[in-house]
């Protein structure tokens, strides 16, 4: 990734400077993560990544959350894609290997499968997510055809809550913030480390998705500890 590709490259915060949380930006970041973890990259998207067009996200993660190591790892994985003859297909096969076929030895992105280590699909975590979605007036789009505890769905839901948090005022804002914090702590941070651990054991051609999972885990952890 070329630093110069970032429109924000020249606008770094000073070291140690404490920033107020911009929930709207966090929402946007969650939507990006939901997208890239929800489905395989197509040719056009892959080209954009290889052209450095994801730099705003990377820069933000480095600058606002101090995730230098995680971003560097993902950046490195992207750089190494040039060594593959059919990078899109190989990434798609990695995606499959990790997320789509083997729900026991792979790294399936469903919270229910990490309940007690041996849960099945549509477990209690999925039921809790469905209840959350229902109470908030949402449902998973029919064509997505994934349970509510799919990581991408959960991140997308988180994005909507962060956007609402950004727009909330007064006591509702604090209530919303606490709800988001609880969601992060109990519904995401509770199993993401296990997912990352599983992904590390899966043999992949590229480090792109393992690096992305590690980044998502670190991000959720940091966001759950963000200042009000």
């Amino acid at each position: 990734m070329r630093e110069s590709a970032s429109p924000l490259a020249a606008a770094r915060p000073e070291m140690g400077e404490r920033q107020p949380v911009d929930w709207e930006s966090e929402s946007l970041l969650c939507r990006w993560l939901a997208t890239v973890l929800g489905t395989e990259l197509d040719d056009a998207s892959l080209e954009r990544y290889r052209n450095g067009e994801a730099a705003p996200f990377f820069d933000y993660l480095r600058d606002a959350h101090g995730m230098t190591h995680e971003v560097a790892r993902l950046d490195e994985a992207l750089s190494r894609l040039v060594m593959l003859r059919a990078p899109r297909l190989e990434l798609a096969a990695d995606f499959t290997e990790l997320f789509l076929v083997d729900a026991r030895s792979g790294a399936p992105p469903y919270a229910s499968l990490y309940a007690g280590g041996e849960g099945g699909f549509h477990g209690e975590a999925a039921e809790r997510m469905e209840a959350r979605l229902s109470e908030a007036g949402y449902a998973v789009r029919r064509e997505v055809a994934e349970p509510a505890d799919h990581l991408a769905v959960m991140l997308d839901y988180l994005a909507t809550r962060l956007q609402m948090l950004a727009e909330a005022e007064g006591p509702a804002r604090e209530e919303m913030r606490q709800d988001v914090g609880a969601f992060l702590k109990h519904e995401l941070c509770s199993w993401l480390p296990l997912l990352v651990s599983r992904s590390a054991a899966v043999k992949t051609v590229s480090d792109f998705y393992p690096a992305l999972l590690a980044l998502a885990d670190a991000y959720c952890h940091r966001l759950s500890h963000s200042p009000p």
């Binding site: 946007l28 939507r31 990006w32 939901a34 997208t35 890239v36 929800g38 489905t39 998207s45 954009r48 990544y49 067009e53 994801a54 996200f57 979605l133 949402y138 449902a139 998973v140 789009r141 029919r142 997505v144 994934e146 991408a152 769905v153 997308d156 839901y157 994005a159 909507t160």
Partner: peptide
């Protein structure tokens, strides 16, 4: 790089 939301 941000796709359509998964929720409705």
């Amino acid at each position: 790089l941000i796709g359509p939301g998964l929720l409705t």
